[in-house]
Design a binder for these strands. Structure first.
Length: 203
DNA sequence: AGTGCGATTGACT
DNA sequence: GTCAATCGCACTA
């Protein structure tokens, strides 16, 4: 049987910038692939946020712990944590092994496996399916089980290259923080309907 | 051992 | 637009 995701090619670690902020920009337009026994899901990344070294809003700021261990893996690993006791959030580790930093994936354009994602989310509306960091993980059935996984190898969760043109990328302050609120470390596809946040934040 | 607090979401005015 | 739910974790004692 041919999977919907058969045509995708895994993103090589060597292609990933070694800098957290550059990685956040680089991941825009790339494809996130989720493979489960029930089926395959995918979506194009349309919004990210960088949490670089020394950022007081970053989970690695106070050093390595059991929870944030995956942030200290070399770039291209998944860090998944539970936010507000309700939503799992997916990060891509950045930097080299032993340095804690990451990129939050905030929104996807749904591509493959949309009916299953609609079941996972109990939502029909395509625009609400993966618009938001906690929504996209629910749609793709991502939780702590996937924490620490290598996203540069095909498996239950991985990143794929895209053959499309590089989209026009906008930049703004990050969303939902109480510290470091002014740093312009959020990146998004300009005008894209699947970007989260108020409309004024996707121009 | 107890406490305070989110990198959010969905329901509601 | 506002607001409460919810729970793992980091921090204090």
């Amino acid at each position: 049987m041919r999977l919907a995701t058969d045509g995708y090619k895994v993103l090589a670690r060597a292609e990933l910038p070694r800098d957290t902020v550059l990685l956040a920009q680089h991941l825009i337009g790339k494809i996130l692939v989720r493979e489960t026994p029930e089926g395959s899901f995918s979506g194009r990344i349309v919004e990210t946020e960088a949490y670089p070294v020394g950022d007081a809003a970053g989970h690695a700021y106070r050093g390595e712990t059991l929870r944030n261990h995956a942030l200290f893996l070399c770039r291209g690993h998944a860090y998944v944590y539970l936010a507000y006791g309700a939503s799992y959030l997916l990060n891509v580790s950045s930097e080299t092994s032993g340095i804690g930093a990451g990129v939050l994936v905030r929104a996807l354009e749904p591509l493959d496996g949309i009916p299953s994602m609609q079941r996972n989310r109990r939502v029909q509306n395509l625009r609400d399916l993966t618009r938001g960091p906690g929504r996209l993980t629910a749609a793709l059935d991502i939780d702590r089980r996937l924490d620490g996984i290598d996203l540069c190898r095909m498996g239950p969760l991985w990143l794929a290259r895209d053959d499309h043109d590089v989209p026009e990328i906008g930049r703004s302050a990050r969303i939902g923080l109480s510290r470091e609120t002014d740093r312009p470390l959020r990146f998004y596809v300009r005008g894209d309907r699947f970007v989260s946040g108020p409309k004024t934040l996707n121009r």
